[in-house]
Design a protein around this nucleic acid. Structure first.
Lengths: 147, 147
DNA sequence: TATTCACATGATTTTGAAAACATAGAATGC
DNA sequence: GCATTCTATGTTTTCAAAATCATGTGAATA
């Protein structure tokens, strides 16, 4: 459904949101360890997100990634769009490059319903809301058992 | 969403269904040309489908792929399951290997709604019904313009 | 029964996303 | 200003899906 980049990004952003209270910033190593993601790869992803204004970053000692006031209102759709673009919501279900309303694949309309449901879900889900789930302990962000 | 294999498979199966009337069988070349898919790769996919009883095949002169009586009642879900397995409907949206009802990722419930919608759609869509769209001219199976 | 045709099968190559590596650059704190 | 700590960037490597290649096998028919 999503690219690996996008999966790691969502997990990372949600984790950052859980720790964003006291205004403390999170380093790459800390984030990757918690969400069980490859360090260098995830670093690039977060840098890309930072570049796109999805999250904020601070260099130097005691620096790291964090969310500014505006960014705490982040939705999942923002993260997905920044990394995977619109192709998740516009691409043809059967891989036809020219598939459109005018010249459509046979499952075009049926598929549209599913994609709209996805788009709707991502548009109505806030990152902070997911962070709360983690804080409450009703959800996890890592593969590693016991965390 | 689906693997390339699955995309080619659906397109191929729908095309076979459109030509299944007079009991004539379709060769690989004919199929690949029509749906604009790589020949050898698609051959393997169809052979796999044939192996799984999704479609039928006949060797020798005037042989090819076709649907027998039972197979004309094929649903999309059958094709997807045969090639991509259940991971399309069960895999975690955030890529967590251990994600389950008990230990779930933060978007588990939201994602479930979308996946169920997809599962529902695939379970209620018949291949012959899609073939009719093609025959009517209200949908296409190829990237190539003008076909 | 030999030839031809078309699917079947296994090995190999290609491709691109994913991941790792190496190095540069910038900010903080002392 | 200098060391430390972190982000930024470009290159290389890895790996599995995707695609190809080469050869085998069964069926039709003359």
């Amino acid at each position: 459904m999503f690219s690996k980049s996008c999966e790691y990004a969502i997990r990372a952003v949600v984790f950052v949101a859980t720790q964003n209270n006291a205004g403390n910033k999170l380093g790459i190593m800390e984030i990757c360890k918690e969400i069980d993601a490859p360090q260098h790869f995830t670093a690039k992803i977060l840098q890309s997100l930072s570049h796109n204004g999805i999250i904020s970053s601070q260099k130097g000692p005691s620096g790291g990634f964090y969310l500014n006031k505006t960014q705490t209102r982040l939705k999942l759709i923002d993260v997905v769009r920044a990394l995977d673009g619109d192709k998740t919501f516009t691409g043809c279900g059967l891989g036809l490059k020219n598939c459109s309303e005018k010249k459509q694949c046979p499952i075009h309309n049926q598929f549209k319903v599913v994609r709209d449901e996805l788009l709707n879900m991502l548009s109505n889900t806030y990152v902070v809301q997911l962070a709360e789930e983690i804080e409450k302990g009703s959800a996890v962000l890592s593969n590693i058992s016991g965390r």
